[in-house]
Design a protein around this nucleic acid. Structure first.
Lengths: 243, 243
DNA sequence: GGCGGAATTTGATCAGGATCATAGCTAGGC
DNA sequence: GCCTAGCTATGATCCTGATCAAATTCCGCC
């Protein structure tokens, strides 16, 4: 399996060794000493999923926690009438399972091909109790996610479609920076429908808004899954809904 | 100061003694042993605020953390054009300052008269490091808030105004249960504007939606600040947007 | 390379909620 | 107990984004 698209790193293979794991520096395992890492590896199983595969369902007992090793994951909640809200996209290095004391509060699915490090909840919990640093790291993560969540509430409740999509693109662009990848080129691993369900819009509005941003010369769309930011500062202004 | 409205407890006085503090069982201090409580008290200052007073502003360095001892607090984010999203209401026992590693990620204001236990960030941090249980408790809290935040994203992105307001009322009703107060009577401590900014609506839509729920016999509004739930199950259905 | 199905874009119309406007209510001050 | 200011409710209109519909592009597959 080799891709033609240029990228900073490639995470197509399931990691089998935490010590050489490329994403470790961004994951919760970054804080672990070598012997702690060994303890972590002992409770780790690896899991690969094809695009669209379910990882777990909302309401299911939370038996496992995960690190995303490669690929994109979406987490979401559903309404009885079928409407879906994607509450987040997870990327390599992200931790999956926070906020789930007993049952998962949301569903999770693979957007692309995905490799996961899977931990048994109970084993992970006892490991957290043994390694102080991991608990701190989790708290840090939870706080970061809380900040992102509040940002997203502002977006969902008070931003225009144009500002919503711009904010989304900027978030992806900034995420690129963590991987030493160019900040002005974004690979969209998710569909327009996913984006719509993340931003509280419809597919059509997302599509029209892309067209608008393209027409205004703020972005280019050389391919449907590739966005090039032409005017970063302009995009930032639009994202903040200046009037 | 004594109110005529019946309530389970009264927290009108600033607590001056954690040991007899009535809200402790719900606050992060619930897990503290007596000597730990003493350490906590040593870094605690009390602060009283009038309705509308600011507690801190978004972006300000996060020098203090708080427990809400009495009253209602709103936390919010603003857009440059002045639009506001209230990301949460805090009630007695809630912790204020999570998600703020360095600068506050949101502003906070008193909705009603408010009493706070104020902790110096640095002192609190070192206390957290000393008392393992507090860190666990904070992580637990952060996880709970994350769950609530996701629930709120679903609400903001995908629910109708009717379902939004119903969900909000149910949340307040369930919060009553924690205080051994009747679940079917809700005291609204915030204005229609606050509710609108919390639900991603306008004042007018909030008002019309109250009228609708009243007209359908699901709730009663004996006073503007008091909601009586007449048909709990019906309200729950509406909140989930069944069609 | 052509075929077929899905994803995306674009177009036309509709409606829900925002906006603008006004009136009613209520609490606090004198 | 009245007056005023702010909050709330209601009415009229508008407009953005949803919905419905169709055309187009893309991609995997043979």
């Amino acid at each position: 399996m080799h891709s033609t698209a240029p990228k900073g790193h490639s995470f197509d293979e399931a990691p089998e060794d935490c010590i050489h794991c490329e994403i470790r520096r961004l994951a919760i395992c970054a804080v672990l000493k070598e012997e702690e890492l060994a303890a972590m590896m002992a409770i780790t199983r690896y899991r690969s999923l094809a695009p669209g595969e379910m990882i777990f369902e909302e309401g299911e007992p939370a038996r496992s926690l995960y690190n995303v090793a490669s690929g994109t994951v979406r987490i979401y909640k559903l309404l009885p009438n079928g409407r879906r809200q994607i509450t987040g996209f997870l990327f390599p290095g992200d931790f999956l399972g926070l906020a789930s004391p007993k049952a998962y509060a949301y569903g999770a699915e693979a957007v692309t091909e995905v490799n996961l490090c899977q931990f048994d909840s109970a084993a992970f919990k006892s490991l957290v109790d043994r390694f102080e640093t991991v608990k701190s790291r989790l708290l840090e993560r939870a706080n970061d996610e809380l900040t992102v969540a509040q940002e997203q509430m502002l977006l969902l409740g008070r931003k225009t479609p144009l500002a919503k999509l711009s904010s989304f693109l900027l978030r992806l662009a900034r995420n690129n920076a963590r991987w030493e990848r160019p900040v002005d080129t974004i690979e969209l691993s998710m569909t327009r429908e996913d984006i719509a369900d993340y931003l509280g819009l419809t597919i059509e509005t997302v599509s029209r808004t892309f067209t608008k941003l393209k027409g205004d010369g703020v972005i280019a769309l050389p391919e449907r899954t590739r966005v090039v930011i032409k005017e970063f500062e302009k995009l930032e202004e639009i994202a903040e809904d200046f009037e």
